[in-house]
Computed example of a mutant assay.
Amino acid sequence: MSRRPSSKKPQYRSDGSFVSKSGSGGDVTGPGLWVTGVRGKERICVAETYEVLEALVEELYPGAQEEYRKMKDAWRTAQQQTEGGKEAEREAENDDDEEEDIEKQVAKELAGLATARKGRTKKLANLIVNHQTNIDCIMWFSLLPPIDPTAITLHLLNKIKSTGFSGLRYVQRLTPASYSCPATLEDIVTLVQTKLYPPVFNQGRAVRFKVLHHSVHNASLDRDVLIRTLATSVPQDQGHFVDLSDNAEVIISVRLLRNVASFSLLPGKEYVDLLKFNVPLLTAEVRVQNSNEKAEGEGGESSSRAGAAVSAKMEAKEAVVGM
């Protein structure tokens, strides 16, 4: 028996980003960051990624977190006042009714205590929110405006390249996502042509590009068909062409998870220089380079000291002969 197509329309936020209702364990849509990590260490990966990203947000977007929290607090206060007003109206209407029995009063008091406890333990509003994917090794972090997922990822990786320190012991790879949509060809073409491509491919010059594809738990879109669709959706009148080598200027990154497709445009040169955003490989390479430079420096100093000693001995010998 064939399955009837769903009649439910895709849901979108006010900013146009797609909201997943796939039952994947959490909302894995909108701007954000894919994080792959070591199996069995996902909880540590999430904690470390939170810590690193929050520090970067304070560095790149100072005051943005606090401003967002104030806005959310004001919204919650308004909601509570609205609910309080409705409760007062209900109580006024029931003034002439008989008093509630003891059991109802106790239940009401317990509900009030539970609400108060929930309010005390509620996590501070955050521009960075982790959502469960229910898939081993794969984590998703929603990044709310003004955070740019690609910019913050590049900043982090360049810091790792310069310092050799990541703070991410169990994270394997980072993949930013600027947009997302339902994983259908129609929705994908609409998204890339209206939002993803214009800032790069409508600048009046030819761009070398290639498509980077990754899919998890999605059997509805054929890989070759999707890659060909993304390539042919690039404007055809400006001389853009596919370059499968490491010389591609722009990488169209597409990642499928169940019924959600997420996209970003990555700078090709930095993608290669930063070892395809592989955190442990990048960290290891920097440390090896630093170790080699240190060894060369120490070797040079030893050679200089040995040369100075030889020169001193020759000068002393010449002085003795001349006496």
Rank of each mutant, 00 (worst) to 15 (best):
1 M>D: 13
1 M>P: 12
1 M>K: 09
2 S>A: 11
3 R>I: 15
6 S>I: 15
8 K>R: 15
9 K>D: 15
15 D>K: 04
16 G>V: 12
20 S>G: 12
21 K>W: 09
22 S>A: 11
23 G>V: 14
25 G>C: 12
27 D>C: 13
30 G>K: 13
34 W>T: 14
35 V>A: 03
37 G>E: 04
39 R>L: 05
40 G>D: 13
41 K>Y: 04
42 E>Y: 08
46 V>K: 06
49 T>A: 05
52 V>A: 15
58 E>R: 04
64 A>L: 08
71 M>Y: 12
74 A>Q: 13
76 R>G: 00
77 T>Y: 07
86 K>V: 14
88 A>R: 06
93 E>M: 04
99 E>P: 14
103 E>L: 07
107 A>T: 07
112 G>T: 10
123 K>G: 13
123 K>F: 08
123 K>C: 12
126 N>R: 11
128 I>L: 13
136 D>Q: 08
137 C>A: 04
139 M>N: 07
140 W>Y: 06
140 W>N: 01
146 P>D: 06
150 T>Y: 00
150 T>A: 01
151 A>C: 02
151 A>W: 00
155 H>A: 09
156 L>I: 03
157 L>V: 01
162 S>Y: 03
171 V>F: 02
172 Q>T: 11
180 S>I: 04
184 T>Y: 10
186 E>V: 05
199 P>V: 09
209 F>K: 06
213 H>W: 02
215 S>Q: 11
215 S>Y: 06
218 N>S: 08
219 A>T: 09
222 D>L: 10
222 D>N: 04
224 D>N: 07
226 L>G: 12
236 Q>P: 02
236 Q>K: 01
237 D>P: 00
239 G>Q: 05
240 H>S: 02
241 F>R: 06
245 S>M: 14
249 E>Y: 00
253 S>D: 05
255 R>G: 00
257 L>W: 00
266 L>E: 10
269 K>W: 02
276 K>M: 10
293 E>M: 06
298 E>W: 08
303 S>H: 13
304 S>D: 09
307 G>P: 07
307 G>I: 14
309 A>D: 14
310 V>S: 12
311 S>H: 15
311 S>N: 08
318 E>C: 01
318 E>I: 00
323 M>S: 10
323 M>V: 01
